[in-house]
Simulated assay, not measured.
Amino acid sequence: MKKRVAYQGVEGAYSHLACYSQFPEYETIACKSFDETMYLVEEDKANIAMIPMENSTAGRVEEIYRLIPKMKLFIISEYYQPVNHCLLALPGTKIEDLKSVSSHPQALAQCKAHIEKYNLVARAKFDTAGSAQELIDMQDKTCAAIASSLTAEKYDLEILEEGFQDIKNNTTRFLVLSKEHIVPAFHEHQKYITSIIFEVRNIPAALYKVLGGFATNSVNIIKIESYSGSGTLTLSQFHIDIDGHPDEANVRLALEELAYFASTVKMLGTYIPHSMREILQA
């Protein structure tokens, strides 16, 4: 049976493009929400999910960070998708005819300067390709959408301007999620990222001591995010990404200190960094 990858959006969305680029042999399943995307994997109706985490121009995807503490899936890899936004409209439309443009809030943020240049009213929609699909139903030449060239091809829309994003090296980081906790074998010269969710104990300087354990063991923390945990405003959960594999001696020692000062610890996944990560961080 052909393997399946689930994504949020409609055909032509950037998540669909990322699925096609990374897993061309997989069948793709379009979902209405991120919750549905993850649910399909949890219920074995899809093998993996492709989820956008952050963009190099507009920052993190807020909804995903709210779902991470609750999700039952594990991170098995990351993928960086270059984003080339296009200004799309009905055939025969001219830029001077436009009054508004719609797209996902992330895409609108990534194209803010160009939207202001043409004095367009920005309208937030659920996804990029969905906003383009709406143009077909509306048949209004004063409206445009921001989406991919794949979307233009699929819905027979005209590309009024390519490279509509404000920053040309615009890239979105995706996570690949699986029901299985697949940890790659440790090899000495290979780089790894390990993602962890933990809740600190309610004692003085607990977070300081947790972070100190990584510092004293020379483990680099790439990212840290905080959430209100356990349904209270007094305890916090933290999501960290670190350089390293749990089987490395220094990482193992840091994790032991984490376990001592944390009330709960969940390993979200260990995976090999995508090749684009170093290029974007250079």
Rank of each mutant, 00 (worst) to 15 (best):
M1G: 10
M1T: 10
M1H: 09
M1I: 12
R4S: 10
Q8I: 13
G9S: 00
G9H: 01
V10N: 03
E25G: 08
C31Q: 05
F34L: 12
E36Q: 02
V41P: 05
D44R: 10
M53D: 04
S56R: 10
T57P: 02
I68H: 13
M71N: 07
S77A: 12
Y79F: 06
Y79P: 06
Y80C: 03
Y80S: 05
P82Y: 12
N84D: 14
L87T: 09
L90N: 04
G92M: 03
D97M: 01
H104Q: 08
P105I: 09
Q106T: 14
K112I: 09
H114K: 06
L120M: 04
V121H: 09
R123G: 10
K125P: 08
S131Y: 07
E134Y: 11
I136C: 02
T142L: 00
C143I: 14
T151P: 05
L157T: 05
E161L: 10
G163W: 01
Q165V: 06
D166Q: 01
D166A: 08
I167M: 14
L175S: 11
L177P: 03
E180K: 11
E180H: 12
V183G: 05
F186Y: 10
K191A: 06
I196C: 04
F198S: 03
V200Y: 09
R201F: 09
I203W: 03
I203E: 07
Y208L: 11
A215V: 00
N217H: 00
I224W: 00
E225A: 15
G229R: 09
S236V: 08
I242Q: 00
A249Q: 07
N250M: 01
L253P: 05
E257F: 01
L258Y: 00
T264V: 15
T270I: 00
Y271W: 08
Y271P: 02
M276K: 13
M276D: 04
R277D: 07
I279L: 13
A282T: 05
